[in-house]
């Protein structure tokens, strides 16, 4: 007796097919399922019922941190820690501190955004049952897959397989966990 499988995977040939299939899996009430596509498919988020990404929150936090870090650094080094008048200019002014703070805003935003992409996607994850599927190489090449996970409360091997068949999935295969 094999262990609990990861789920079922079905193959689709075109973007239109996966789009309509996704709508039906969503409407059937599944929650733990996914589409594997070689490129982002326009509108598939809506068809899957995926909510808007929260990556921008990371970016905003990074940007604010970067700007404040720049201003604080220039103020503290020049006006607090070692006061040195150069060219009769003020010890601190947001004017001359602006270019560096601006660059640091961008730098921190970039790092925070990339951290956000990885964190929201739970990457790096070098082992995943989907990657063990024999035909996964086609999933990044030219095929589209729907994966319904066994941990979904609505998952039932027979009923789910029937649904995937009904929506046009081919080569429906059980994935090892």
């Amino acid at each position: 007796m094999s262990a609990q499988p990861h789920g079922l995977i079905a193959t689709f040939d075109t973007a239109a097919e996966i789009y309509h299939a996704a709508e039906q899996v969503r409407d059937a009430g599944y929650r733990h399922w996914d589409c594997i596509t070689p490129c982002p498919v326009h509108g598939l988020d809506g068809a899957m019922g995926v909510r808007r990404s929260i990556v921008p929150r990371f970016s905003l936090a990074g940007g604010i941190t970067g700007f404040c870090a720049g201003m604080t650094m220039i103020w503290w080094t020049g006006a607090v820690d070692y006061q040195l008048t150069v060219g009769g200019k003020p010890l601190f002014s947001p004017m001359f501190a602006f270019p560096i703070s601006y660059e640091l805003t961008i730098l921190f935003t970039a790092f925070a955004t990339i951290f956000g992409i990885f964190a929201t996607n739970f990457l790096p994850m070098h082992y995943h049952p989907v990657l063990k599927y024999d035909h996964i190489v086609r999933g990044l090449d030219d095929k589209f897959f729907v994966v319904v996970e066994a941990r979904d409360p609505k998952f039932d091997t027979k009923a789910t397989r029937a649904l995937l068949e009904k929506i046009g999935g081919k080569h429906i295969t059980e994935l090892e966990a």
């Binding site: 982002p40 955004t113 990457l123 996964i136």
Partner: peptide, 28 residues
């Protein structure tokens, strides 16, 4: 590749992040 598997849930975050990177690289 960080275990990238072409998941659409990943693409959603990825596309958003990529657009923000484009957005901040422009003023950069």
């Amino acid at each position: 590749a960080m275990g990238w598997r072409g998941s659409n849930r990943h693409w959603s975050n990825y596309e958003m992040g990529y657009m923000i990177l484009a957005g901040i690289s422009t003023p950069l």
